[in-house]
């Protein structure tokens, strides 16, 4: 087991290193965005003095390297900085409000995004696994083809199109679910779930194909192996052959694809959020880019990167754990 702990620590270290590199890239890229917050907020009436004053206020007059390390030091201590857009500039009003921290802005939005991702994953992962396993079991049958065509067409359609189709059928023609998903922090869980269901279904349609097809392919890939033939020659039922003999050996690629799709659910759902007016982190991100609210953009990017790295790290570790050769060395 010593080697296993070493692998875990090694991966963790690599993950942190990647995150550091990504933070440099994010900072550089965001600071290369054209335009400037002070310019943007003051608009046409910007006098050079006012611009300089706001820039000084926000620390934008410092050299980028120093700003980067100030930001990094803050991030390590859990302080993501002050939001530009929400700041009440002390030079103008003399007061600061509690709303101005980036953390305060992102936290509720991020919680909403995680809620939506969680609901989607709870539907999509079991459904894709089940469909994939059944498609492998009844491979080349009508069922297999229908599932393949259905999932492929749903992944090939644009997300907003799927969203509007679902709204049409589940909210307009049959008013089962609300078409607006504006949720609040003081809402009950039931109502929250009801409002989240349509976006979650839309996202399920988007991510199912990938996971289902990988499950099917990974299992079928193994069906020609001698130990599967052995299992069949032991007179086991086809379902048992697949669940007990093929699936455990097919887990590694399936886990990786699931992780990739979960990461997508956290980072790539802006369009669906906009369609359903869902207050997630994607909308905040897009708005912040529009406003040149650099600290929020940086924090969002960092969260997205961390989500990707963390999920991939977990997928790697679970793939390793699914291999008995590593769990039980000679």
């Amino acid at each position: 087991m010593k080697s296993l702990t070493r692998i875990v620590l090694h991966r963790l270290f690599l993950g942190l290193l990647t995150l550091f590199v990504v933070s440099v890239v994010i900072f550089t890229a965001v600071n290369m965005l054209p335009g400037d917050f002070a310019q943007a907020i003051l608009g046409q009436g910007a006098t050079p003095e006012a611009v300089a004053s706001i820039r000084r206020d926000l620390g934008l007059d410092q050299p980028p390297v120093i700003r980067y390390f100030q930001w990094l030091a803050g991030v390590i201590q859990g302080d993501l900085g002050r939001s530009f857009a929400q700041a009440n500039f002390t030079s103008f009003t003399g007061t600061t409000s509690g709303q101005s921290s980036v953390m305060g802005q992102i936290a509720p939005r991020f919680a909403n995004t995680m809620f939506l991702a969680g609901v989607t994953a709870a539907i999509a992962v079991p459904v894709s696994l089940a469909l994939g396993i059944l498609a492998a079991l009844y491979r080349n049958s009508v069922f297999d083809r229908v599932v393949n065509i259905a999932t492929l067409s749903s992944i090939s359609s644009p997300e907003f199109f799927l969203a509007y189709i679902l709204i049409l059928f589940l909210a307009v023609l049959n008013p089962l679910l609300p078409s607006l998903s504006n949720i609040y922090s003081d809402m009950g869980l039931g109502e929250r779930l009801e409002r989240t269901l349509l976006p979650a279904l839309t996202l399920t349609l988007v991510v199912t194909a990938h996971m289902m097809r990988m499950t099917r392919a990974a299992i079928i890939n193994l069906l020609a192996s001698p130990y599967i033939e052995m299992a069949r020659l032991k007179g086991l039922s086809p379902m048992r052959v697949i669940l007990r003999h093929a699936l455990p050996n097919a887990l590694a690629p399936i886990i990786n694809v699931i992780a990739l799709n979960l990461a997508y659910l956290i980072t790539g759902v802006v369009v669906v959020e906009v369609v359903f007016v869902y207050p997630g982190i994607g909308q905040l991100f897009v708005d912040s880019v529009k406003n040149r609210d650099i600290p929020v953009v940086q924090a969002c990017c960092l969260i997205f990167a961390a989500a990707y790295i963390l999920l991939n790290l977990m997928a790697d570790l679970m793939s390793i754990l699914s291999n008995p050769r590593l769990r039980h060395p000679r």
Partner: peptide, 11 residues
């Protein structure tokens, strides 16, 4: 089978 190493399920 010919190869027991391949015909036992590694999992």
């Amino acid at each position: 089978a010919q190869s027991a190493a391949a015909s036992f399920n590694p999992a």
